[in-house]
Design a protein around this nucleic acid. Sequence first.
DNA 1: GCGGGGAAG
DNA 2: AATTCTTCCCCGC
Length: 677
Amino acid sequence: MDTCTDYRDKDTHTPEYNRDVADDRRRILARTRLRRQQTSIIIHFDCFYAAVLENETPKLRNLPLAVQQKQIVVTCNYEARRRGLYKLQPIKEAKRVCPEAVIVLGEDLTRFREASKKNYSFLASFSWNSKAERLGFDEVFMDVSDMIEYNVGLLNHNHLTNSFFCLARNDPTAGFAYDASRVAGHTYPPDLAPPDLAPPDLVIDSPVQSDERLRLHLTLASHLAKHLRQQLEAQNGYTCTVGISTNKLLSKLAGNLHKPDDQTTLWPPYTADDSERDNVTSFIDGHEVGKIPGIGFNIAQKLRAHVLQREAEIDAGLVHGGTKEGVLAGHVRKHPDMGPETLERILGGPGVSHGIGGKIWRLLNGCDDTEVGLARHVPKQISLEDSYLRLDTMEQVLKELRMLAESLLKRMHADLLEDNEEEEEEEEEEEHGEDIVAVRHVTAVTPTDTIGKRWLAYPKTIRLSTRPRPPQTIDGSTRNRSFARISKSAPMPNFVFSLKDDVGEISARLVSESLVPLFRRLHPEKSRWDLSLVNVAATNMVDAASEKSRGVGRDISKMFKRQDHVLKQWRVDDYESKISAMEINQVETRGHHGRQTILLREHSIRGSEDFPTSSQESSLRNDAKWESEHEDDDDDDDDNGGHAMVGDDKFVCELCGAAMPIYAMATHSRFHKHERG
DNA sequence: GCGGGGAAG
DNA sequence: AATTCTTCCCCGC
């Protein structure tokens, strides 16, 4: 075993020997508990926000450029940074430090959002497995394991210097030439031993396992990254900074080492007999705790307090990262008794995710097994907000709500609508005749002939949030605990999905029928409030059942088979007539057990007149009978007030057979009430 | 489902 | 200190 120290030439009876054995056992134990995955290759891209403006106006490129929102600089280019500007700097200070800076108003994020979408789609289009995840507007993770694996298989180990990277499995000519005997770009640590030629004939048992194979995989990934960077610049005009490693945490951190417009590969060994000597540990150890992604301000403060044995001070003078304490990840990791249990004790508490200790411990050790998310076409939520120096009259509030509502509508149209191509895809295959029957019914009701557009997803909920101005305590003790927002939500009214009505009309109606009632729920007093922020959001996004997704039909037939005790009360024609009146949406419940359920949801746009407005709905709220005490349910299946329990905490509606957690049932029964008229 | 909280750029 | 304008995820109920 290469992970075990060899003791053969040591005296087996000295205390040193015993200590070594103990240490080694502990290390091995620790390592097996948090085995670093070396099965994936992840690339992290960091594009650049301010570049959007530079590209629009190239002469800005060499000038110090800052983007202003309200009273602060939200971002700035490197020239501005060189002259002392920084993120979240007060605009006054920025002007004092660098009067010649060009300051651009950037409260409207449309252009940034569009650039972000364009760059993201471009990068994601290279992916084979669709694992391409956006983080904020300017970062993208890609899991390129499959591309790398495939291209390792293509290598001719006798001619590594003349290799060809294949970008498409079905087109051997798509790709680029490269030198597989050398890494592209920088590495950490910087000075590599003379070129590590891969051994000519290694047993290829994927996935990556040995350091040797990992080196080879990372080398290929570095060339892929370089190619993607070049393409992004050539095709879209954006440079980016890239990190290459085996997980999201490490690739993101590695990228920081050489910016802007460059790339860094975190080089093996990722594990070593002496845990201090592997590159991952030394790399992570050197980071200030708060710099580890996943360790936010609160957790960082608690960790600092623990190693310093006192509250960590927040140095106002050190806005640009870090505190004057300078507590490093390594300090925390090596602190006496440190480990997942200790961390759980320090960090855990009400509202904190269970297992936070283990999670932070893994981060401190460079371990991160979170998957790169699948590429997504539609957002999960759309929200807009504005902040104010003073907002304390209903008149102002109405004005703001109108603006926000109209912007929200426009965003929904921009981000959730798709051109309605009438391509009637032929029904290929299939072995289950019943699937196809179900699919046909769904297809028949999707809005087609409206205005040449169709909804890709429907937000089911509208939410209004405000941030009351923090109460000014005149006494010195500023225990301003609450800089929090408060929110209320309601069903998204159906009329917003109309494609024939005027946007202005719809948003006016949205204000009067949804947002104003929500505002009254948030702020029942006539006056007395002063808001510093208002936010409206369209949330609870449900994908529209698309003609293309055969998965819907499958799941329906699965539901028939699995839950016939519930569904037998339906005659088939009954079911089909209901189906034709509804669109079927697949809903992923992220409940405790992550089970998939199917909800049947009305959304026929033409029928929307009969449908309740949010104010009507909220007056129908009848939550009382669902009040808690579902704690100790016994599992007797059927006698549950008309709802069959299908296991754990899922219930099945006796009217439509939908399975759902108990919390969802109040709303669901309201749905049936309206359905009946 | 609802409302709050935390993390990220 | 928290500042902006978002997006996503998790918790307890």
